[in-house]
Each structure stands twice: as structure tokens, then as C-alpha cells.
Simulated scan of single mutants.
Amino acid sequence: MLIIKKIKILYKTIILLKKTNKKIGLVPTMGNLHNGHVKLILLAKKYADIIIVSIFINPMQFNNLLDLKNYPQSFKEDCIILKKHNVDIVFFPCIDEIYPNGIRKQTFVEVPKLSKILEGSARPGHFNGVTTIVCKLFNIIQPDFAFFGEKDYQQLLIIKILIKELNYMIKIISLPTIRLKNGLALSSRNNNLNSKEKKIAPYLYKIIKKTCEEIIKGDNTRKNIIHASKILLIKKGFSIDIFDVYNSKTLENSSENVKKLILLASVWLGKTRLIDNKKILLIH
């Protein structure tokens, strides 16, 4: 397994790989790897000959400096996991390598509209940071495939638009959210939960599931169902940024005649931000 920290060295390595006609798969991460990342790597192996995992905690996508400071790091442990699963290359650049002139002077990439709503509204500039680092990784690595989890649903939609509109010849493969047995979506941020919060956190997905079931039943108005669920979340100890149902393709507030919906949730539990979602298919 190669650990590469410099863009120039990675460029040269990619050029050599391209000459052998090997298919390259990219799994972008911010490190602190968990089983969700492992599942992405295993999925990548079904599509690509060479697997590259990037580890970079991207400061450009953090609008909260405390959140950036608290983001868990575990590079040595991550490398043990990656080596175990026969990853070919780990790209582990420093901040100055990615942003040599600093973040404020960095050219950025923006996907209009979708980057400004929901999570983008709650975290100004967040998605500009995401799309900029993703474009940089695509330009440096030139993968044939890139793999993303569906837990970050809005991010996934934005990246798909970016791929299409910037004419990248890259196939995006997504993986459904990986969960613990108690339903909690796997996330590096879960490590920031204290013991009491870890007992409360699974209620988020339980309430999401219950909400979706009631919306499908249609015995009450969608507005009343959402309102009752929000009250329940607050009683459990969550602070809510986003909890509502949207058109799964556009993320616009859904009208009653839209059949493919998604419930998006973004909440705080103590100092930890948790996001999750669940798709809803209405058949009546």
C-alpha cells in the first residue's frame, strides 16, 4: 500500500496506472474510518482495479472552527484498516498541499441552488468546500469511479449535478447508509458523543422510521406528523436544524402529488451534529 502526500508524486503514479488501462476507483474520506467506509472500499473493488482512498479533513467545508477542531483523527489506525482491505494508494495531503495560497484566496466550485438550501443554509459555505475539494480530487486522481455514502444525501445529489454539468467522465456509485444494530447511522462524529448521548442518539432513526410509516399511512396531515415528531425529538434531547419531507430529486418542499420523497434530518445532540435520512415511496 502506497501512502502519498504530494500531488506531484500522485500525478506521476496516476499517469503510470493509466498506461496500463487499469480502472481507478476513488473513495474520498476525512479519515477516522468506520465500517461504512469499509463497505465503500469493498464496493469499489467490484468496479475498479486500483483503489485509492483519500484522507483529508477539509477545512474549507467547516463553517464552525470548533467543529473542525473536534473532528476526530486516527491516521495510524486508518492505515491498518486500509492495508487489511488491500487498498492500493492512500492520498494523505497536508492543508498547504491542497490550499497553497490559503482558503480565502482559493478558487472555489459552487453548484447553485442546491448548495444554498437545507444543510447549505444551516452551514453557509459548507457545500462550496465539498464541491471544491471533490473537484480537486477528481482532477488530481482522474478516477473512473467515485464512491459515496447516501447518509449525506444532499451532498450526493450536489456531486451528481457537478459531475454532469462539469462534464466529468466519472461514474458515481452510492452506498445505502450503514447502521449499527440500534439503527444509528455510522459516522466519524459519533465518536464525539458521550456515554449518555450514545444511548439517546439511536432515537433519531427510530423517530425518522416512525414518521415515514405514518406519512405512508396517511391517517394524518404531513404537517401534523412532522410537528409531532419534532416535539418527540426535542423531548429526547435533540436540537433540530432540519426535519422535514422533500422531493427526493430536487429537495424542494414536496407537494402532495409527489410520490418519491425523502425525510431529511439534521440535528444536534450536545456538541455533535447528526444527519440522517429515509426515502419514502407513496403508492396511493
Rank of each mutant, 00 (worst) to 15 (best):
M1D: 10
K6V: 05
T13G: 07
I14G: 03
I15L: 11
L16F: 07
L16M: 09
L16T: 12
T20W: 06
T20R: 15
N21L: 09
K23R: 11
G25P: 01
P28Q: 04
T29Y: 06
N32D: 08
H37S: 03
I41C: 02
I41A: 03
L42C: 05
L43F: 00
A44K: 01
A44V: 03
K46T: 02
D49I: 02
V53Q: 02
F56S: 01
P59D: 04
Q61V: 06
K69T: 02
S74M: 06
F75V: 13
E77M: 08
D78S: 09
C79Y: 15
I81C: 05
I81A: 08
K83Y: 10
K83F: 10
K84V: 11
H85Y: 15
I89H: 10
I95F: 04
I95H: 03
D96Q: 12
P100L: 06
P100N: 04
N101A: 05
Q106V: 04
T107M: 10
K113L: 12
S115N: 06
G125V: 08
G129N: 06
I133W: 00
V134W: 02
K136P: 03
F138S: 02
F138Y: 06
Q142L: 06
D144Y: 00
A146C: 09
E150S: 07
E150D: 07
Y153R: 02
I158H: 02
L162H: 01
E165F: 11
L166I: 04
N167E: 12
Y168P: 02
I170C: 00
K171A: 04
I172S: 03
L175C: 13
T177H: 12
N182H: 13
A185H: 10
N191H: 10
A201W: 14
A201V: 10
Y203K: 15
K206Y: 14
I207Y: 07
K209R: 13
T211M: 10
C212N: 12
C212D: 08
K217N: 14
G218P: 09
N220P: 04
N220H: 14
R222W: 00
N224F: 09
K236F: 11
G237F: 05
F238M: 08
S239R: 11
F243S: 08
S248T: 07
T250A: 09
N253I: 12
S255A: 03
K260A: 13
L261K: 02
L261I: 07
A265F: 11
S266V: 15
S266I: 15
V267P: 11
G270I: 09
L274G: 07
N277C: 15
